[in-house]
């Protein structure tokens, strides 16, 4: 398999000429009934509303009542808004820095733990965080990283006199990123480890006979054979990172109040427009931010595919 999106279709029954055999013709007639129901539901519930969202982004709208045509005003305001700049920068930091950290951790663990004792257990457990609601994690973090919290008590007992103030404004975003890394690293490690497990043992045995060390084996066997998985995960990560929202909100805000602007991401920006804690909702600008998210999704998906695609030949 090459990367999932826009993959050249599998050459089914290569010996048959295009549409020639009755078999091919029958298959062709199957496309409609198989594809259309899904396409229809998807288009009606997701695409049509998204198109309406694009329309809303050119208007001033409180979410109810009449819309007022605003042209590009929402987009202009967004670009001129320094908070939008911060949100954009934060989103990109999450995308790149957290992404890099997550993938490095997941790789390291995959590479070095292939024969670890208890790896099944570890693998099952590190998936847990994605099952625990963000709120629980936020409350736990509060207790853990408080200036007098467990983390700092441990550090102090290790002789560090002035442990960091994890939740101080200047450190907060880094702490948020660390938390996101923790949350995602487990999930991706699980996926990577499972993918590595599917690589036939004899590849490794052959390499070992050739005297390859673990690093060489990883570089020349595991990595190339996992490339597809990595590509899919990179796309998923990119899309997930663009939509980063709930974690920041529950982590840094109290109920009903938005987190400090220094921590905002794209999606928090859009959310703050549509659901301000106190004011009139501004669906126009919220929609504009959402449209930008969608555009970036497309761009990033294609970009990731391009970058990953270069290695495709190495697959088999």
């Amino acid at each position: 398999m090459t990367a999932v999106l826009e993959r050249p279709p599998v050459k089914a029954a290569p010996r048959s000429r295009r549409g020639g055999s009755p078999f091919e013709a029958a298959r062709r007639r199957m496309i409609g009934p198989f594809l259309l129901p899904a396409l229809l539901v998807y288009a009606l519930v997701m695409i049509v509303p998204s198109v309406i969202t694009v329309w809303i982004s050119f208007n001033e709208w409180a979410g109810v009542g009449a819309m007022e045509w605003a042209g590009l005003a929402n987009y202009r305001e967004m670009v001129a808004d320094p908070v939008f700049g911060t949100s954009f920068a934060n989103t990109m930091k999450i995308l790149v820095l957290v992404g890099a950290a997550v993938f490095v951790i997941a790789f390291t663990l995959t590479m070095l733990l292939q024969d670890m004792v208890g790896r099944k257990f570890v693998r099952a457990v590190i998936f847990f965080p994605s099952l625990v609601p963000g709120l629980v994690i936020a409350i736990l973090w509060g207790f853990l990283l408080d200036p007098d919290g467990l983390a700092n008590s441990v550090l102090k007992s290790l002789g560090i006199a002035e442990p960091p103030l994890w939740l101080a404004p200047e450190n907060m975003f880094t702490t948020v990123m660390a938390g996101m890394t923790w949350l995602a690293a487990g999930t991706y490690t699980v996926i990577f480890m499972a993918a590595a497990d599917r690589i036939p043992r004899y590849f490794y045995e052959a390499a070992e006979l050739d005297g390859a060390g673990p690093l060489t084996r990883f570089w020349h066997i595991t990595l190339p054979l996992m490339w597809d998985v990595i590509g899919v995960c990179a796309v998923l990560w990119a899309i997930g990172a663009l939509k980063t929202f709930e974690f920041v909100l529950v982590f840094a805000g109290a109920t009903g109040s938005l987190p400090p602007t220094g921590l905002w991401t794209f999606s928090v920006y859009a959310y703050a427009g549509a659901f301000p804690s106190d004011g009139v909702p501004r669906y126009g600008i919220a929609s504009a931010a959402a449209v930008l998210t969608m555009l970036l999704t497309v761009v990033l998906t294609i970009l990731v595919r391009r970058v990953m695609g270069r290695r495709e030949q190495a697959t088999y």
Partner: peptide, 11 residues
């Protein structure tokens, strides 16, 4: 208090 701005509400 020390660290009042480095703790999470409602600490």
């Amino acid at each position: 208090p020390d660290g009042f701005n480095a703790a999470k509400f409602p600490a």
